[in-house]
Amino acid sequence: MIKKLTLENILFLDIETVPEQPIFSGLSETKQHLWEQKSQYQRGEISAEEFYERAGIWAEFGKIICISVGYFTFHGNVRQFRVTSFFGDEVKILKDFKNLLTSHFNQIKHLLCAHNGKEFDFPYIARRMIINNIELPEKLNLFGKKPWEVPHLDTLELWKFGDYKNYTSLKLLTNVLGIPSPKDDIDGSQVYKVYYQENGLERIITYCEKDTIAVAQVFLRLRGESILDETEIIHA
């Protein structure tokens, strides 16, 4: 089935998120209390304030700072993978991403693909759009859709082959499949520090784009095709 999909119809993506405020005390008292409640089972003996740097993984307490996307183009025998990023102000990021979907990936044949996207990237983007009063584009509006009507692909799900107990990180998957690692500078656990303490958005954008490329590479391997080389990757 996966080999029947047309690569040009797939938009590969990855997102990077951080807590909505640089520090816990930047939250309102109400939001601080809500965070204490929300995180109580995950943080164990760690205080809510100390645990706050991990708040970016929850859409209710975090925000998106970068969405990187990539798509294939073919000109005769020449294959290219074009990558670009939306970054900076979250509302602008979300509106620009929505405009891409509605303008170029709005048909039934079009699909979105991410690693662990069904559990994280896709719902996170949708929730942040609703929080920011942005109407959901059709590709993210899943209300009333049957499972087979959802236009999302997930390389984690594809790798599970029906095994619901298994979680495989993108870093591990690229390693076992012989794909260059996207985690050669920072990883997800360092994004908070790089963004808020080091003002390193450019590093985060590069990291996000590498993850997007890695998702496409994994998808190619799952199809039994050769992975991209550097000459085929175009940063727009």
Rank of each mutant, 00 (worst) to 15 (best):
S39I: 11
V69L: 14
N132E: 04
H115C: 04
Q32T: 09
S28F: 13
L140V: 02
Q42S: 14
Q40H: 15
I23A: 15
N77V: 05
I46L: 09
G56E: 00
I131F: 07
D121K: 01
G117P: 03
G117K: 01
D96R: 04
G26A: 04
F97N: 01
W148D: 11
D89M: 04
K92H: 15
Y41M: 05
A55N: 03
V78P: 11
K109Q: 14
Q42K: 06
F120M: 03
Q32L: 09
I93R: 00
E135Y: 12
L112R: 03
T30Q: 12
S39A: 10
T102K: 14
G62A: 04
Q37A: 11
I93K: 00
C113T: 07
K139C: 05
F120K: 02
Q107R: 10
C66L: 02
P123R: 00
E16Y: 04
H33W: 10
V78M: 11
G70T: 01
R127P: 13
S28M: 12
Q21F: 08
T17F: 02
D121I: 00
I57S: 15
E20I: 08
S25M: 09
I23L: 15
I57G: 13
D96L: 04
S39E: 08
C66F: 02
Q21T: 03
L100V: 12
F86W: 07
K92G: 12
I64E: 01
H115S: 10
V78N: 14
Y41C: 06
G88S: 09
A48K: 03
E16N: 14
S39F: 00
I134M: 15
E119K: 15
K95H: 04
K109H: 14
E20P: 05
E20C: 08
I125Y: 06
G88W: 05
R79W: 00
